[in-house]
Structure formats: structure tokens, C-alpha cells
Amino acid sequence: MSEPVKVFLVDDHALFRTGVKAELAGLEDDRIEIVGEAGSVGEAVVRISSDPPDVVLLDVHMPDGGGRAVLEQVHAKLPDVVFLALSVSDAAEDVIAVIRAGARGYVTKTISGRELADAVVRVSAGDAVFSPRLAGFVLDAFSDRNGPVAVADPELDMLSPREREVLKLLARGYAYKEIAAQLFISIKTVETHVSSVLRKTQKSNRYELSRWASDRRLV
């Protein structure tokens, strides 16, 4: 590992930022380095723009529009900065909204420090990070349970059988390595499938996805 991944923390709770910093520092993981933090949307936009980090750990729920507002203001300007959403929310609306705004992954705040560090390294390398719950949401959104859906763009609006399999294993709590072993494919292939699912989740216009993403829930 050459350069450590520069990580920036955005969360309106100072206590939580301190906790994450302490936990990541306690790992003595030289793959990552926390370079800054922000407690509000405005502060985050200014600081990320002035000195772009590699990965931004982004809280979903914040005053003034939350993580989505940060993504909307920064992502287009700085496409190289990777966003990983970190939230206590389990609502599909919130999760899908930040993913569609450009986040490359979603993990819950109860994640352990070790797993968080791994997730940060993975997204910085270009992978997507799906928690089991996010995998469940995406499977739900792409399912045909409520009858056949009019598909405008098969390339975007449908999951391939393989992608579906990978997602199901993710939802069952399998790690990439375990998925690769289960499906007799390489880890690299698993990563490719997950990235492809992420792209479809962000770009598809399936009804559930756009509905979830447009419902703004304020809690």
C-alpha cells in the first residue's frame, strides 16, 4: 500500500465524529488517514472543495438537506472524490436517495471499525460497498413481484441472473470472498457485478427507485 487513503468525515454529531476518528485511529491501520471533518452541509462543501480528500464518510441525516445536499453540490465538481454513506437510517428512501445522488456505498453506523476501514479502502479503489440491507432494497426495487414492469431500457432496468445471485448472497451476509467461493468466480468478478448493480441503481428509472429517491423524508 503506497499512499494512505485520505478520509474526510461529515456528520452533524461531534460525538459521533470523535468516536469514528478514535476507532479508526485505534486500528493503527496505515491504509487510511483522517484528514478533516465537518459538522454541517455548508462547512463540508467548502472544506471538501478546497482540499479534496479521497473518500468522504457522509452522514445521511443532517440539517439543511443532509448528505444528499453535500453530494449534489460537490459530486459534479469533483468526480474523483468518493462518497460512502454512513447512517442510522434503515429507510429505503434515505438509502436509495444518497446512492442515486452519487454515493458509492452505504453502511450502517453500527459497523465495526475494522469493517469500516475495509469499506473505505474498497470504495477508494473503485468498488461499491453494499450492506446486506442495501442489497435487500435493491433486490426489492428490481423485483417483478407486482407483475411485469414496463422496461424502457433493459440495459439499465433489469439485473442479470448473475448480478441477482451476487446481490442475494450479499443480502445473506456473505463477504466478497465467500461469494466468490460460493459461485466459483473470482473476487474481481464479484466486484464487477456489484459495481454494475450500483450503476444500474443510480441510473435506472425504475418506478421504485425514482419514487424512493424523490420522497424526501425528514426525521
Partner: peptide, 19 residues
């Protein structure tokens, strides 16, 4: 413990998994 359930293609499946 991870629990995953799906209702699909005429089957209800539940997976209970631990490491």
C-alpha cells in the same frame, strides 16, 4: 446473526447465517 428472507418464484426462502 444474519437473517435473509425472500419471496420469489413461488418459493419462500429464509437463510439464517452466522460466522
Amino acid at each position: 446473526v444474519s437473517v435473509y428472507a425472500e419471496v420469489e418464484d413461488g418459493t419462500v426462502s429464509v437463510f439464517v447465517r452466522d460466522r
